[in-house]
């Protein structure tokens, strides 16, 4: 069976985006020349580690301007809401809320002396 047989088998099917070998959907290619290097002359891993480290680094750095602003913003929201939560559950937070809701007047009671966590 030719490798392109499934594509040319006249089976009913949708119009496909990518075809099979021999009918792959690209422009007809001609004049393709192939060359080979003796296994003793090949350096399959030449520059691999260098490329992995430095090319990898520059690719990550190139992506940083797109990732960093949203990441910093959402980390900021996370950090802000966590510290706000801690404040609301601290003595200071409770004290301030009692004043805010009018249950006590400022200076009516001594302010809590224990420093809330994270402040």
């Amino acid at each position: 069976m030719r490798p392109s047989a499934p594509a040319q088998s006249h089976m009913p099917g949708p119009k496909t985006y990518g075809g099979w070998w021999g009918d792959i959907g690209s422009l007809p290619q001609k004049g393709i020349k192939t060359y080979g290097v003796s296994p003793y002359r090949q350096r399959a891993m030449a520059g691999a580690l260098n490329g992995y480290i430095f090319n990898g680094f520059s690719r990550v750095m190139g992506h940083l301007p797109y990732v960093a602003p949203p990441a910093l913003f959402f980390y900021g929201v996370y950090y802000w809401s966590k510290s706000k939560y801690e404040y609301f559950n601290s003595k200071q937070g409770h004290y301030d809320r009692l004043i805010e809701e009018g249950h006590i007047k400022p200076g009516q009671y001594e302010r809590p002396t224990v420093t809330p966590i994270g402040h």
Binding site: P69, A71, F74, Y85, F88
Partner: peptide, 28 residues
């Protein structure tokens, strides 16, 4: 950038889901 904004929203929601439903987490 919009893609990473979506990732940020997703992780923020993930954090919020793990917390008690109290302020400021309710508003956020």
């Amino acid at each position: 950038v919009a893609f990473w904004v979506f990732v940020g929203i997703f992780f923020l929601l993930m954090f919020l889901g793990s917390q008690h439903a109290e302020e400021p987490y309710i508003t956020v």
